[in-house]
Structure formats: C-alpha cells, structure tokens
Measured scan of single mutants.
Amino acid sequence: IQLFSRPDFLGDHFSFEDDQAALPASFRPQSCRVHGGSWILFDETNFEGDQHILSEGEFPTLTAMGCLASTVLGSLQK
C-alpha cells in the first residue's frame, strides 16, 4: 500500500508491505494506492477505532477510502 500526504497521490508518501501498529505521528494520509490484496485502515493506533477496508485500487481522497474528510488514520493491517 502507498499512502500520500495530499489528495490525488501528491505530497510525501510512505509505502508499506506489512502491518503498521502506528503511522508516523506527523504523517496524515489523504490518498492511497492499494497494490494487491486488501488492507484495513484504522482511525487509531494499535489497530483500534473505526475500520476502513480497501481492496486493490486507487483512492484519490479520504472520502474515496470510505472515511470522513476529517479522519486521521493511525494504523493499518494487511
């Protein structure tokens, strides 16, 4: 999965292949690309809070990911 700090796959980005119990504190994903398989994104660290399940594809905004525009993602799980 690739996470981007701005909508439309712009800004800083991080790529992950494994579960992340905590995303970098200063990084707030605003768009993402899922390459193969599914990922669960969580509103809180340690895989807690609301879950957003994404299958392979491109998600140019938080709302395209099924999140509110104000959502701050905290962790993710493959």
Results as ranks from 00 to 15, higher is better:
Ile1Asn: 06
Ile1Trp: 03
Ile1Tyr: 01
Gln2Glu: 14
Leu3Gln: 00
Leu3Pro: 00
Phe4Tyr: 13
Phe4Gln: 02
Phe4His: 02
Phe4Trp: 09
Arg6Gln: 15
Arg6Met: 15
Arg6Glu: 15
Pro7Arg: 09
Pro7Met: 08
Asp8Arg: 09
Asp8Gly: 12
Asp8Phe: 13
Phe9Val: 03
Leu10His: 12
Gly11Ala: 01
Gly11Ser: 02
Asp12Tyr: 11
Asp12Pro: 08
Asp12Val: 11
Phe14Gly: 04
Phe14Pro: 02
Ser15Glu: 15
Ser15Ala: 10
Ser15Phe: 12
Phe16Val: 04
Glu17Gly: 08
Asp18Thr: 13
Asp18Pro: 00
Asp19Pro: 01
Asp19Phe: 01
Gln20Ala: 13
Gln20Asp: 03
Gln20Ile: 10
Ala21Asp: 09
Ala21Met: 09
Ala21Thr: 10
Leu23Lys: 03
Leu23Tyr: 01
Leu23Pro: 01
Pro24Val: 03
Pro24Asn: 03
Pro24Gly: 03
Pro24Phe: 02
Ala25Thr: 11
Ala25Glu: 13
Ser26His: 14
Arg28Lys: 14
Arg28Tyr: 11
Pro29Thr: 11
Pro29Ala: 12
Ser31Trp: 09
Cys32Ser: 04
Arg33Trp: 06
Val34Leu: 05
Val34Ile: 12
Val34Ala: 03
His35Ala: 11
Gly36His: 10
Gly36Ile: 03
Gly37Glu: 06
Gly37Ser: 09
Gly37Ile: 01
Ser38Asn: 09
Ser38Phe: 08
Trp39Ile: 00
Ile40Phe: 03
Ile40His: 02
Ile40Asn: 03
Leu41Asn: 05
Leu41Gly: 05
Phe42Asn: 05
Phe42Asp: 02
Asp43Gly: 13
Glu44Ile: 02
Glu44Ser: 13
Thr45Met: 14
Thr45Pro: 15
Phe47Met: 03
Phe47Cys: 04
Gly49Gln: 04
Gly49Ile: 01
Asp50Phe: 08
Asp50Tyr: 08
Asp50Ser: 13
Gln51Cys: 12
Gln51Arg: 13
His52Arg: 13
His52Cys: 08
Ile53Glu: 14
Ile53Trp: 09
Ile53Gly: 06
Ser55Ala: 12
Ser55His: 13
Glu56Gly: 05
Glu56His: 09
Gly57Val: 03
Gly57Phe: 04
Gly57His: 05
Glu58Cys: 08
Glu58Arg: 07
Phe59His: 06
Phe59Ala: 00
Phe59Ile: 02
Pro60Glu: 06
Thr61Arg: 06
Thr61Asn: 15
Leu62Ile: 08
Thr63Tyr: 11
Ala64Phe: 00
Ala64Lys: 10
Ala64His: 12
Ala64Asn: 07
Ala64Tyr: 00
Ala64Cys: 02
Gly66Ser: 04
Gly66Met: 01
Gly66Ile: 03
Cys67Leu: 13
Cys67Thr: 01
Leu68Arg: 15
Ala69Arg: 13
Ala69Met: 11
Ser70Asp: 15
Thr71Trp: 08
Val72Asp: 12
Val72Phe: 10
Val72Thr: 15
Leu73Gly: 09
Gly74Asn: 15
Gly74Gln: 13
Gly74Met: 14
Ser75Phe: 08
Ser75Thr: 06
Leu76Ile: 14
Gln77His: 06
Gln77Phe: 02
Lys78Ala: 03
Lys78Ser: 06
